[in-house]
């Protein structure tokens, strides 16, 4: 037998899980090979160390016996106590929460439920209103800058699909779709542009007109909201004075 045959079977040899003839072969190799013998001795030492018996301390025997016989109570009590021990196990299995986690969880959950109950706007999607705002024929000043005199609310409704339909039916030559937000002060500001017009100057003009306009009340909303505005703008080239 050679070392490369001896090494893979060394654990079975240690545990005497080989046949008598194989054991004899292994033993013969061990006697002749110093390195394998050294290796064997190391593992044998490990085996010896692990195999050291440990005895249940006498002081614990009585307390364990007492607690075990306590556990053999009538069925209902046993069931209740097993439920309790399951709960204790469950609690123990949870990650120990830090003080800050506990301290943080309470206000966060309070704020969450408060938000739910006071009907704060960000949660209530249905209160967003959609409006069609049209920009009537506009003029160009001497410098060629578009001048938008007013922005009018054509229609407001809660249904976006209806509004899109209406918007398509408006006469137009250039179109612009944007989202404007009506500020508490009464004017509106462009939030984002969905569809750009051919002329960026027109976008600026609509923007400044929205800033100067007053929107007293938007639909049936008590407070100003995000407004989706679909503008159909009739462009009259060189219509200027």
């Amino acid at each position: 037998m050679r070392c490369k045959d001896f090494r893979p079977r060394i654990h079975e040899f240690l545990d005497a899980h080989l046949s008598a003839s194989e054991m004899a072969l292994m033993e013969a190799h061990r006697a002749n090979c110093d390195r394998c013998n050294e290796y064997y001795q190391d593992l044998h030492f490990v085996r010896q160390a692990v195999s050291e018996k440990i005895f249940l301390p006498e002081s614990s025997v009585r307390s364990i016996l007492a607690r075990v016989s306590e556990g053999k109570r009538p069925l209902l009590l046993t069931w209740l106590s097993s439920l309790r021990s399951k709960w204790v196990d469950f609690r123990r299995d949870l990650e120990p929460a830090s003080f800050w986690a506990k301290a943080g969880a309470l206000p966060i959950s309070m704020v969450f439920f408060a938000l739910l109950f006071v009907n704060l706007a960000p949660i209530r999607v249905e209160r967003i209103a959609y409006l069609i705002v049209s920009v009537p024929p506009w003029t160009v000043d001497n410098a060629g800058t578009p001048v938008v005199l007013s922005v009018e609310v054509v229609q407001d409704s809660g249904k976006l699909a209806d509004l899109v339909d209406t918007a398509w039916r408006l006469p137009y030559e250039d179109s612009l779709a944007l989202v404007a937000e009506i500020k508490p002060e009464g004017h509106a500001e462009i939030d984002r542009v969905l569809e750009f017009p051919r002329s960026y100057a027109l976008l600026d003009a609509v923007g400044s007109t929205l800033r100067e306009s007053r929107f007293e009340k938007v639909g049936d909303l008590a407070r100003p909201f995000l407004i989706y505005s679909f503008q159909k703008i009739d462009v009259y080239e060189q219509q200027g004075l």
Binding site: I54, F55, L56, I64, V68, G71, T78
Partner: peptide, 30 residues
């Protein structure tokens, strides 16, 4: 002793081994 020494060597902790010994016998008897 069998249960205790097995639990002790596997968990490498005396207090844990004692607890496990108790739990094991409770489970066995139940």
């Amino acid at each position: 002793d069998m249960v205790y020494s097995l639990a002790y060597k596997v968990l490498t902790n005396k207090a844990e081994a004692l607890d496990v010994t108790q739990e094991v016998f409770l489970t066995v008897f139940r």
